[in-house]
Write a protein that binds this DNA or RNA. Structure first.
Lengths: 354, 354
DNA sequence: ACCCGCATTTATATCGTTATAAATCCCGAT
DNA sequence: ATCGGGATTTATAACGATATAAATGCGGGT
């Protein structure tokens, strides 16, 4: 195609992209629009539009004919035009905390979201931080400028400002994790209480005498859930415990390792660790290894698993699975339901069990 | 904001989204457009548009005034309108092979891309597979329907159809990996030849007598590069070698482990493994562990590292780093350059060294 | 005063779609 | 024959931005 008119130099100026739009040849070159179909069928543009929308006021025969022609010429509606006219964007924004425990977390969720959106008119746009305005809340930005029809975000806080803002403005959203606000809102969450509770019991069953848990940063709701589940279990069993101080699941993995390594050398050291993430679990394993402690006898470990990673880790580690792909799938479906029409909030909430 | 009129219940009916658009109060409610600015400044819409575009024909004073007002009222151009009018989408599509070795690979790259696009008008859209048309080439779809201004894809093949198609149509793109086509095209690649070569030499230096390499599927160009680097090294050194058969880096990790485990029990087993990915390296480690072989003496391993994962893996493994975040950053920048205007192809190519 | 040219601003048309209101057509009832 | 009314189709305007061409204002040369 670019070899067609090697002599025509004057036109090269508008080389921006694609064959110039003026091509008269109505063949297959130009992108088909409603107008194209209108001309082919002898109908008006409006009629074609409504026919494709399957409006009952358009004769069935006409609808079928239009649809057939549209199919034949490979018509696809121009999203920009639709968006401009209707105000709907057909976009779902996934807002990712830049400090995300990125490995696996986001990816699994994206896979699920993708699956939920497949076959719909919706696109997924990843919005990690924002443009050149470093600290302006991306959620506010998306909402105010209608960059999306719905927002998804993660790492919810007990009194999350994003939730408040979106609720106030009745803007469709769903978050991963819960708040502690009085008014109900859509969410998908994992039973982190159950996770920590079960993890503690597993450690105790394995013979651990003093448990330690590495928690997420305290500002996140799920940190509270985990702490609560952990505390409940250790109190029920009357076993020794501590909560890692100075490091969280968000800490650099080297820092976590350093902390655990140091702790493993001190008196009254814990012999049972609970890790809410894969990286921190590996850090605990590395610490034990570097201390010459044997996993499964000297030290015990229960980790949260969100990928297949631990299937290849030796020695084998006890894990509890959180299915983030499923979470993404759920969030996608619930958000679409939310956008589509009114659904009772209760229907837009899901709690994944351990 | 929602506390302002707590009594106004009647309005709740139009609950769909946001305050109804009819709000006459010109305050902060309605989304500002060029028209808003035009009214505020007493200028024509056209003038405002050009002023914001910093057109030299508009008086400097006017430009400043317009910009100031725009800033004050928080004006942001409507992307749909811009897109409809100019044909530019301000979108970059990252097309992801659904069989992607997703863990870390895509995520790192996305981080880099995000960084490259930050502060520009471009959005990143992830396109994993497509809509309800399972097997229609997503690249063709994006190009034909102008869903993006540029395309990024990975896992390039020697005679890649996507590259051909996009080149024929002069559509901006950049791919991760190279082809073996005669005509040059933009790409970012990692020196996988160098990786395999260096890895082999490291193993030999460590005392390995028979090397084995697990390669990517043969259809990808970088599989050839790796094989070539590997072969060069083993021939130079005259050491024993083999190439893993029946499994590739894309195989399920359990299958890789089973294969290696089996091989480790056979006569003339390799004692030095090269893995082009983290998961496969873990599988090799697990196999050795399950066989009771000690890493670093009985068996040696050199792995490609694309994340911080291996910093926490014990025993420590020799790795060679491929910076996929940097690759994403490069790809983003080069693609923007490509889109912006003409840049010699040579300037749109980058090879990351080992 | 007049006209010219330069700097600056403005009017108009358009991108592709859809909401609204108006216009046809056909048929049976008067 | 005329009219009303349901079924179907169409014309017009608008979403918000920008490309193009036209218009305005102003100072200087004659």
């Amino acid at each position: 195609m670019s070899l067609e008119d090697p002599e025509d130099k004057g036109e090269n100026k508008s080389r921006r992209a694609m064959p110039a739009r003026g091509t008269e040849k109505a063949g297959t070159g130009a992108k088909p629009t409603l107008k194209t179909i209108a001309e082919l069928t002898g109908l008006a543009v409006t009629t074609v539009s409504r026919a494709l929308a399957d409006a009952p006021q358009i004769a069935l025969e006409t609808r079928l004919r239009v649809r057939q022609v549209a199919e034949e010429i490979g018509y696809l509606p121009d999203r920009a035009a639709q968006r401009l006219r209707t105000g709907r964007t057909n976009v779902i924004s996934l807002v990712l905390d830049p400090h995300e425990e990125i490995l696996g977390y986001a990816t699994s969720m994206i896979n699920g979201l993708t699956e939920a959106l497949r076959g719909t008119a919706y696109h997924l746009v990843i919005t990690p931080h924002f443009l050149n305005t470093p600290q302006i809340d991306p959620v506010r930005h998306i909402m105010r400028n209608r960059m999306a029809d719905g927002i998804i975000f993660t790492r919810t806080e007990p009194s999350d400002e994003r939730v408040k803002l979106l609720m106030e403005n009745n803007f469709p959203f769903i978050c991963h994790g819960r708040t502690e606000l009085a008014t109900a809102h859509p969410f998908v969450d994992y039973d982190n209480y159950g996770f920590a509770y079960q993890a503690a019991r597993k450690l105790i069953a394995a013979g651990a005498k003093k448990l330690s848990i590495i928690l997420p940063p305290d500002r996140f709701t799920f940190a509270h859930h985990m702490r609560h589940g952990f505390m409940t279990a250790v109190r029920e069993e009357g076993v020794g415990f501590e909560i890692a101080t100075g490091v969280t699941l968000d800490s650099k993995s080297d820092d976590i390792r350093d902390y655990v390594y140091k702790r493993m050398g001190e008196p009254e050291r814990p012999d049972g660790y609970i890790c809410g993430g894969e990286v921190s679990a590996l850090a605990v394993m590395a610490s034990a290894y570097d201390r010459g402690l044997e996993l499964g006898s000297d030290v015990h470990l229960v980790a949260k698993q969100t990928s297949g990673l631990f299937d290849q880790i030796r020695p084998r580690v006890e894990t509890i699975y959180e299915d983030l792909t499923e979470a993404g799938l759920l969030m996608g479906r619930l958000l679409l339901k939310h956008i589509a029409g009114r659904a009772p909030v209760a229907e837009l909430q899901a709690l994944q069990t351990v």
